[in-house]
């Protein structure tokens, strides 16, 4: 097969692009592929995947599930699709339904396994200690038949459990 740009050299680089729902295959020689890679806008991150000439189905056409705005920075999902960048850390939580499949396609995984922020570990530890203490107090309150206090403690425990579950799931 000959290169689609110069029509002279043998095409050795093949890749698939998806633009507006249409997938098209491109076959280029090494020189033209390099030139094309260089012509792509250097800082558009999804184009960056292309400049790597990876045979990759770009999730540009992903259904916009995460409607609404990020409460912290005001970014919408369609803003993100336009500029290819999120606005803040909170965006990841706001658009998690759309981002989860995207991350999976880009990285082949949805699970971070590298270095962890010490802070994230510390927050988890603190919550565990706090829960333990509250549970002890709850036991004592029940023993002493202080039901009002027990109900208050139970609510606090539930609240903390909900928070740590949420943070374990997304944040």
């Amino acid at each position: 097969m000959l290169c689609e740009i110069c029509g002279k050299s043998q095409a050795t680089v093949h890749y698939t692009e998806i633009i507006n729902n249409e997938s098209s295959e491109t076959h280029l020689c090494e020189d033209c592929a390099r030139k094309k890679g260089a012509m792509l806008k250097p800082h558009f991150p999804l184009a960056d995947l292309l400049s790597g000439l990876i045979d990759f189905n770009l999730p540009l056409t992903l259904e916009d599930k995460g409607r609404g705005k990020c409460p912290q920075c005001g970014l919408t999902y369609s803003d993100f699709k336009k500029i290819g960048r999120l606005g803040c850390g909170q965006c990841y939580d706001t658009f998690k339904e759309s981002l989860a499949p995207l991350l999976k396609r880009v990285h082949g995984s949805n699970e971070h396994v590298g270095k962890s922020s010490a802070l994230a570990g510390k927050a988890m530890q603190e919550a565990t200690l706090q829960l333990r203490e509250l549970q002890e107090r709850l036991q004592k309150a029940i023993q002493r038949e202080e039901f009002e206090e027990a109900a208050r403690l139970r609510d606090r425990i539930r609240e903390i459990e909900k928070k740590t579950r949420k943070s374990a799931a997304s944040e």
Partner: peptide
């Protein structure tokens, strides 16, 4: 260096997706 900085600054981090970056192609590590 990063560990020293991590002790002083609060980095955007999620248990599932690791370090959160402007471009999702950098998220994780």
């Amino acid at each position: 260096i990063e560990s020293e900085l991590d002790a002083k600054l609060k980095f955007a981090f999620s248990r599932n997706w690791g370090y959160l970056t402007a471009c999702p192609t950098n998220a994780g590590t």
